Amino acid sequence: MTKSEASTGKPPLRTQRETCWKLRDEYFSCLEAVSIFDPTKVDTDESIQKLVKKSDCWKKKSSYEDACMTSWVDYFNKRRALEIRQRQILAETKKQSADGESEGK
């Protein structure tokens, strides 16, 4: 979906949504391959930008942003960052629980 289509107020078609999701997943996978897990930092951190530009991820980012509505891109990026933080907290909690159980024995 182009930005002009998004501004018309029409909801995206199923094929447009599927394309958006596919390109989002490809972009996020590309970021993971270069050890970047928070897509919200790509636009704000210069060192991350350089790394993304050196890889194929910059093209994938552009395709993803062109195919998806801006509000969706913002939502997906923030949700991705939140999911990663939640996984890290959960892993740390499990580790602390396991450490606590082993100390109690």
Rank of each mutant, 00 (worst) to 15 (best):
M1P: 03
M1Q: 04
T2E: 00
T2G: 04
K3W: 14
S4M: 03
A6P: 03
A6Y: 12
A6H: 11
T8I: 11
T8A: 01
G9K: 10
P12L: 05
L13H: 05
R14M: 07
R14G: 03
R14N: 08
T15P: 00
T15Y: 05
T15C: 01
Q16K: 06
R17M: 06
E18C: 06
W21Y: 10
W21Q: 10
W21F: 09
W21E: 14
W21L: 09
K22F: 11
K22W: 05
L23R: 06
R24W: 14
D25A: 07
E26M: 06
Y27D: 07
Y27P: 08
F28H: 08
S29M: 12
S29T: 15
C30D: 13
L31M: 12
L31T: 04
L31H: 11
L31G: 14
E32H: 13
A33C: 02
A33Q: 11
V34W: 01
V34L: 14
S35I: 12
S35W: 09
I36T: 12
I36K: 04
F37C: 03
F37L: 09
F37I: 11
F37H: 08
D38Q: 05
D38H: 08
P39E: 06
P39M: 02
P39N: 06
T40K: 11
V42Y: 04
D43E: 08
T44Q: 01
E46S: 12
I48P: 02
Q49P: 06
Q49R: 09
K50L: 13
L51V: 15
K53C: 11
K53L: 13
K54S: 11
S55K: 14
W58N: 13
W58M: 15
K61T: 07
S62I: 15
S62M: 15
Y64R: 11
Y64E: 06
D66G: 13
A67T: 10
C68Y: 13
C68S: 08
M69I: 01
T70I: 09
T70N: 10
T70R: 03
S71N: 07
S71Y: 00
W72R: 01
W72I: 00
V73D: 05
V73S: 03
D74P: 00
D74F: 03
Y75I: 01
Y75N: 02
F76K: 00
F76N: 00
F76H: 01
N77M: 01
K78W: 02
R79G: 02
R80G: 03
R80N: 15
R80S: 11
A81C: 04
L82Y: 07
L82F: 05
L82C: 02
E83M: 13
I84N: 03
R85A: 12
R85C: 05
R85G: 06
Q86T: 13
R87E: 06
Q88I: 13
I89G: 00
L90N: 09
A91M: 10
A91Y: 02
A91F: 14
E92R: 10
E92F: 04
E92W: 01
T93M: 08
K95N: 11
K95P: 03
Q96S: 05
Q96I: 10
A98W: 11
D99L: 15
D99H: 10
D99S: 09
G100R: 15
G100C: 08
E101R: 15
E101F: 11
S102R: 14
S102I: 12
E103H: 08
G104E: 04
G104D: 01
K105Y: 04
